[in-house]
Design a protein around this nucleic acid. Structure first.
Length: 322
DNA sequence: CGATGTCAAGGAATC
DNA sequence: GATTCCTTGACATCG
């Protein structure tokens, strides 16, 4: 018997939706305190819906690393009590938290300013989780970054960037295979060098797999990087297949033409057939948490769960029981 | 009120 | 060397 938490990222869409963080511009004085109130409401919803895994927005502490706005830089310590409270609540509920800085956080950038900015961002993410008192399963997920100079040089720059981090930020960081430059096997030597695990993204693997590994083999590589006692996690999504539209100006009229989506684009929901294949095949008997990356967010999770439960899988305390 | 512009930030491909 | 794509929403401003 194996168990898998299922999670979703950032936005809550169900029942009219919930705000995920204070998105006001800096002129309006946004603050982590407000984001944490919103997060409290999201935890209520997670409890109600029996969901035990959630990705926090990277912008939870707004403007916390803007070089020109030092007035935002102390939000984590200003909210120490609120963070401890909300973290205790997440722990009591068994909600596994993570965050995933986006394309602008490039720890292996050739530009030292960009690299330092990425390091600063990772420090904040790590400090947030530490202040929440979360265990080692709460990780900050990052891609390797740019590929300039070749894979080895790119990995080397990443390792340098990793060296800029505090011990606490290092302990949170995990690396994810991406969809065009660094497959699982490309990430592996870096993961080993810095002693941090790999989050395996199944769709990315299908997009970029230079060695031609099966999902099972690639998954096995990633699983081997997780220490005993910390449940591994993976990302799962289905590719968008619906045709999009592109508009183009021809003279003064606008012409619309259909666009076939790229494989990497996320669908609204998760294909339950492909997901079941993963559960019954490559995932085997391992306990692995699964972050769903679907545009439909919590709605996609609940739909998938309904499908799976309808097909005989169990659901207990936020975990799929296989 | 609805439409449009803007937002911190990178990298890679393309011209 | 400059522009566009990637991809995303929501705030802010304009008409």
């Amino acid at each position: 018997m194996s168990r898998h938490r299922l999670g979703f990222a950032v936005k809550v869409l169900g029942d009219g939706g919930l705000p995920s963080h204070d998105t006001r511009r800096w002129q309006s004085g946004p603050h982590l305190r407000h984001s944490l109130e919103m997060f409290g409401a999201i935890l209520d919803r997670l409890e109600r819906d029996d969901v035990r895994m959630y990705r926090l927005p990277t912008q939870l502490a707004p403007y916390a690393t803007f070089p020109d706005h030092p007035e935002f830089h102390d939000q984590v310590s200003e909210c120490a009590e609120e963070l401890a409270a909300v973290g205790a609540r997440a722990r009591d509920l068994g909600v596994r938290l993570s965050s995933h800085p986006g394309q602008y956080t490039v720890l292996n950038s050739e530009n030292p300013d960009t690299q330092r900015a990425a390091a600063a961002e990772l420090e904040v993410q790590g400090a947030l989780f530490d202040a929440m008192g979360l265990g080692p399963e709460a990780v900050v997920i990052l891609h390797v970054g740019g590929g300039a100079g070749g894979k080895e040089a790119a990995r080397e720059r990443f390792a340098e960037g990793f060296g800029l981090l505090s011990e606490t930020a290092r302990r949170r960081l995990v690396i994810e295979n991406d969809d065009r430059s660094f497959g699982v096997v490309d990430v592996l030597p870096l993961a080993q060098e810095i002693g941090r695990p790999i989050v395996f993204d199944v769709l990315h693997h299908h997009c970029y797999d230079p060695e031609g590994l099966t999902v099972g083999d690639a998954l096995g590589v990633a699983m081997g990087t997780w220490p005993a006692g910390v449940r591994p996690k993976i990302h799962y999504s289905s590719p968008r297949t619906a045709l999009g539209e592109k508009e183009r100006k021809v003279g003064r009229r606008i012409e619309r033409s259909p666009v076939v989506p790229q494989l990497r684009a996320h669908a609204d929901t998760v294909d339950p057939i492909g997901f079941e294949e993963l559960l019954r095949g490559p995932l085997g008997r391992q306990d692995v948490d699964i972050m769903l990356e679907a545009k439909g967010k919590d709605l996609a999770l609940k739909t998938l769960r309904d499908h799976l439960v309808g097909r005989g899988f169990g659901w207990e305390h936020g975990e799929l029981v296989v």
